[in-house]
Design a protein around this nucleic acid. Structure first.
Lengths: 197, 197
DNA sequence: GTCTATAGGCAGATAGAC
DNA sequence: GTCTATCTGCCTATAGAC
């Protein structure tokens, strides 16, 4: 770790930022070291200094994304108190992603799953588990308090929400239309008793 | 068109079958002519005789898949009369796909969308439009008859169902667990008033 | 840390014999 | 229709100078 700070991001971080966008837009199998290098005006060899193999770069990308998403969940827990408002904030997390023409990084990797290096596969599962677990917790609190209503177990309802949001990003992409995502998300929230006006 | 029939499928069809599976499992950007050729014990050059470019093969795959799916919708219309039973049959269409470890072909292509040749992109949108339209029709009939209940427009509810099912396939893949898909699907159907036992 | 140069392999695609 | 042979280009990755 160098002593750079603030706006001086450091090369490793800039590589991750560029590769992250390429991964979310095109997929892991459809971007190359050459793409990242040309975007950053570096050479491929320099990238290999920071991330020796594409698999290692991929693992770093999944880990960072999943950890940042978990931080987002923590922020929601600190900010929004009622389960319904937590779910609305959760949807916003996804809306921010798709607004940039991107797919959820782990949703993209779920599609490419069989082609991924095993450590990346584990990262994808971890992302899903963390999100499903968090959602199930919110749903449990909400149903106990009477502000949410699920049919079936909280784990199943959490699965439906996660799947629905990932799928809504997926089918909204071809139309480059955030509203398509938002209306699907509203319907999903309505399914667990959240009223959005 | 040759005069072959029955079990003698014809090379073009065998190519499509093999490429379709590879596409649904690995994605368009993660399979090659070499993969298809080795599976069929042909050479790459032979494949190019039937499908001059990968883009043309890709278009043929989307078209065939989308048309077959539409035939599936017609069969449901001919077989199941009540809107709720139509939706259950619709879910079964997806369940058959994921049971083979595959992703919906057009869901996969939606993820890879920005990297696809424009004619393939059009095919993906067409698939989504057809399915959303069919679902909206079923929902309209169901709500009119009182056997289904949607919050919001039928188009929005159709979008949610389509997104939810595509997403359920996506997030179920890493666990190779059809039950994960089925429980999410049950929740989605419950959201429009279908009771499954 | 970043570079030039290069290796070795695989991609999609074509020419031409059979 | 299917083959062998080949082309061109891009891929991931490495060696070694600066």
């Amino acid at each position: 770790m160098t002593v750079t700070q603030g706006a001086d991001l450091g090369t490793a971080t800039r590589i991750l930022d560029t590769a992250e966008e390429l991964l979310q837009v095109r997929g892991y199998n459809a971007f190359s070291y050459a793409d990242v290098a040309s975007a950053l005006k570096l050479t491929k060899a320099s990238l290999h200094y920071h991330f020796p193999s594409k698999a290692e770069l991929g693992v770093a990308l999944v880990t960072r994304y999943s950890d940042r998403f978990a931080e987002g969940l923590d922020r929601i827990d600190d900010t929004d108190n009622s389960p319904p408002s937590k779910l609305v904030a959760y949807v916003d997390l996804y809306a921010q992603v798709i607004a940039g023409g991107r797919m959820c990084l782990c949703g993209m990797l779920a599609a490419e799953y069989p082609t991924l290096p095993p450590p990346m596969q584990a990262g994808v599962r971890s992302f899903i588990d963390r999100n499903q677990g968090w959602l199930a917790g919110v749903l449990d609190h909400g149903t106990a308090a009477g502000s949410l209503h699920t049919s079936g177990s909280s784990a199943d309802a959490a699965m439906m929400l996660l799947a629905g949001l990932e799928g809504a990003m997926l089918v909204a992409r071809p139309y480059a239309d955030v509203e398509r995502f938002r209306s699907a998300a509203r319907q999903l929230l309505a399914a667990v008793g959240v009223r959005t006006h």
